[in-house]
């Protein structure tokens, strides 16, 4: 039991800070630069990612374990995962619309973007590999924690970036660097700060 908790803590700290999905692993950059212009939309997008990632990791883990590995067709994982994620997103959209219109209003417009977000498929594929801390395959709990924590890391980076970009609107930026390039430089400086976390070693 204790080893379980230890591994959960390790996975979450690694996913949020040390191997932040955006700033260290470079996953999900398109939404990161696309939706980080305003803080409110960044928060909505980030929440939607956390939500979908947590649910989709549970589903893809189960499908991988019971169907793909059981039938020795692991090579189909890309196609199967992508279809599962796409239909899950569609299902979630309909479910939210019916049962939680309020949540649907705040997350709704970001949900269709999830299908082509490489962070979602990325975490599903990472979860089929080996847990870097224990050296054994991810269990269901570990992969869901990994999904949720990666989503939180995404949310963190996205919100920080949106805050910075809102300030940058007022700054005097060289014309050629205006827009995307200056955002890349900002992200680079953030990535440098997050590089400091790689010194974290625990347990």
């Amino acid at each position: 039991m204790t080893s379980n908790i230890v591994s959960i803590v390790q996975i979450s700290i690694a996913a949020v800070l040390i191997q932040n999905f955006i700033l260290a692993r470079f996953l999900g950059l398109c939404p990161f630069f696309g939706v980080s212009k305003k803080l409110s939309s960044a928060t909505g997008m980030g929440m939607a990612v956390v939500f979908v990632m947590t649910i989709s990791t549970a589903f893809t883990w189960w499908i991988n374990e019971s169907i793909l590995v059981g039938m020795h067709v692991e090579y189909l994982e890309t196609i199967v995962f992508i279809l599962v994620i796409a239909s899950l997103v569609q299902l979630l959209e309909m479910f939210l619309q019916k049962f939680s219109p309020h949540l649907y209003e705040s997350l709704g417009i970001y949900l269709p973007l999830m299908t082509t977000n490489c962070a979602i498929l990325g975490v599903a594929i990472i979860n089929t590999g080996v847990n870097q801390f224990s050296g054994s395959p991810y269990t269901l709990v570990e992969s869901v924690v990994n999904g949720a924590a990666s989503g939180v890391g995404f949310l963190l980076a996205l919100v920080l970036m949106a805050g910075l970009r809102e300030r940058m609107e007022l700054a005097d930026i060289p014309k050629s660097l205006d827009g995307l390039p200056i955002s890349f430089i900002t992200a680079g400086l953030m990535a440098m700060a997050f590089l400091g976390f790689s010194g974290l070693s625990f347990f």
Partner: peptide
């Protein structure tokens, strides 16, 4: 080679491309 360098390099290459275009 680390993550921040990737962001910096693409930023400046994009900046140079924008400059040439303008």
């Amino acid at each position: 080679i680390l993550a921040p360098g990737g962001f910096f390099v693409i930023a400046f290459v994009m900046g140079i491309a924008n400059w040439i275009r303008s």
